[in-house]
Write a protein that binds this DNA or RNA. Sequence first.
RNA 1: GCCGGGGUGGUGAAAUUGGUAGACACGAGGGACUUAAAAUCCCUUGCCGAGUUACAUUGGCGUGCGGGUUCGAUUCCCGCCCCCGGCACCA
Length: 798
Amino acid sequence: MHRKFDHQAIEQKWQKRWEDSGIYATPPSDTNQEKEYVLLEFPYPSGNLHIGHWFGFAVPDIYVRMRRMQGKRVFFPIGFDAFGLPAENAAIKHNLNPKEWTDANIAHMTDQLRSMGNAFSWDALCRTSDPEYYRWTQWMFTQFFEKGLAYQGVGVVNWCPSCNTVLANEQVVNAACERCGAVVLKKEMLEWKLRITEYADRLIDDLEELDWPEAIKESQRRWIGRSAGAKISFKLSTGETLEVFTTRPDTLFGVTYMVLAPEHPLVEQYKDIITNWADVEAYVAATRQKDEQDRLDDTKEKTGVKLEGVTATNPANGAKVPVYIADYVLAGYGTGAIMAVPAHDERDFAFAKKFELPVISVVYQDGGEIRPTSNMQANPGSGRLKNSGEFDGMNSEEAKKTITEKVGGTLTNTYRLRDWSVGRQRYWGVPIPIVYDPEGKPHAVPQEHLPWLLPTDVDFRPTGEPPLAKSAELKERTEKIFGAGWRPAVETLDTFVDSSWFFLRYLDPHTTETFATLEHQKDWMPIDLYFGGAEHTTMHLLYSRFWQKALFDLGVVTAAEPYTRRINRGLVLGPDGNKMSKSKGNVIDPDEQVKRLGADTVKMYLAFMGPYGEVTNYPWDLGGIAGIRRFLERAYGLTDHIAESEPETTTRLLHKTIDKVFRDINAYKFNTAISALMVFVNHVEKEGVTDDSYAIFLRLLAPFAPHLAEELWEMAGNTTSVHQEAWPQADSALLTEDTVTIGVQINGKHRGEIAIAANASEEEAFAAAKANTKIQERLTGEVRKIIYVPGRILNIIV
RNA sequence: GCCGGGGUGGUGAAAUUGGUAGACACGAGGGACUUAAAAUCCCUUGCCGAGUUACAUUGGCGUGCGGGUUCGAUUCCCGCCCCCGGCACCA
């Protein structure tokens, strides 16, 4: 019978008891239990937990709790990604300190997190803004600096005019700032970068080993964008050589012109040689003017200017070809210059048509020559060579190698990935632990001076000038330690740096000797399962893989890859099917729901919406959550149906439920696991259940409704925690039925059902079918064939 | 344009990956209880039709569209259409 329960009293009671007894604290190393490190993307302390946090944190807790009951030694920590711009912006708005704002939010959100009732290892909690955390962020950065992995260089950066800071390439989405949506500008400046490009191959190749959804792997591969080709040098009429990157060295004989990116250094250098310099200069200036948005808006009509007075010589056949600048060639990719083969590249073809340049076809396909003419398209396919001298008839693949060798080029890979820009011209972050000597040469702050504290005497309102530059304390500190004329770096680190190693600090949150002992790393790393959102595919997930590899090369971590398995989840939408937002007024407040219906209900409802681990968006359904609450009330009232004995159907169903709940949780299909529990409750309400079976049911319920299951477990007379009980084992003998109902088809059409022994022979099944009047009526003609799949189907062909 | 993931009732979704399509839940309709409402309980609920006073019963269609393979297709193959996410002149 359905029965109300006081969820607030129950939840408070058990949350306190679990904490007092410390049953979820980080498990000690010295046991024979198998370890399992389950990680969540830690929250940014924005002020309030939203439904997305619940979806992301409370649902994986189901998996964690089952694994614990199965005897695994599970580590399930939580923390805060506490540095970042919102704190600064909020502080400016409310006229307080970013630290105060952040700390207050953390305190509040910690309470909210506790109300979830997750099996968190609270003892491992850490926050990236604590000096004891960021001293290690800084230490790692200095190690990278010493190895040349962190460097400062002048380049064109992405500048967000609204956030007043540099952004990494990954943080620019559709030419706009990933955080605030402002259109990103190009700006030339000195910036701090990490050489992630040096790890490009490993970041691609090591994906093979990972048990990740293919979609994420593919996105990372495409983001890194490795392409195999060759670097080939062309002699210029000026005497210098021009190096180009091409994926098609086999088409070298088809080169009819060259193109440099407008920003290419040679352009400026040839100022006095180029006879139409005014035109060239104007084009370069126009390109510089264009921001990212303009480039996207382009209709992709090709533009460019010929460099009059400069020609290039094709190393393959000595042909002299003109040289252009055009903005379809990007300064940041390859060598910033290309050899153009209009016959076999669509972009070159479009350009050649516009500027009336020759098109020479040098590749044809077997079984029919396809040659572009001025009215046709380029043919980018591979095939056999022609018009290529001694290489005629060779296939493209072989020719790529042979021709490259012949002209003294080198086969090489080129990547789309850019080095990771990590310096930020803002306040609330990790100060870059670098000081400059009087000559301006950068030096790492030595370990004994770490943490290199974030100064507090700072006006952090954004002016475009880094706030730390205004700190007298930082300046004095630097001079005091290093000497007169020394000055500190004034940028802070991108917060993606902080989150690139948080999972290591969880292992040893209080050690002052190191960021995490090797002993604990060996015990827990790599992370077995990482739950998170799809938006981090080419940001956090890529950065932290790189960071781990860089640490691995320093010999300070034990694993070359941080995350063995990854599950991406979808999004919870508002009841109207739109993304929740204050302006749409469709925001569901989890606190309100928890107060009204309980944490167990909210958690279970989120788990019931659909399969987890598929990036699908689920609208919040007010009626749906009421249904879950109803289910829990019925589970609560199940004691009314406890009897001395139970029918065999109940026992069998129980074992099927054990089996299904286990398999479904293991596959993150929490929705169908819950429906199996519902089926069991529906059945027991009619048929009754014994004490023993009821106790098993409570153990199955425990991961989904930890508070209620614990309460019922206690009400059933137990003094232990249900969460420390062993996970039930299904009796395989009870999983298979003796008799089954199977469908009967005639000519493939469903015509009825028969109940027969599970191991019935074809003859027996056919006999049973003939005994069925409905079937019999239809079996008029001669039976030509019988298809019988035991336990599944009987199909009679007449 | 390219890459990835999808399209199943009024809704969220199931379907042991070729074997009774729609489990479970929501919503809706009807009934019981109640002075009444809420809550709860029971029944019905893919669509269209036949049939009966009411049951019982029964036919056809149905997993985005069009083909194909198969005894049998939501599942496999071919060709389209649409939706969501990512990338976007990357040589």
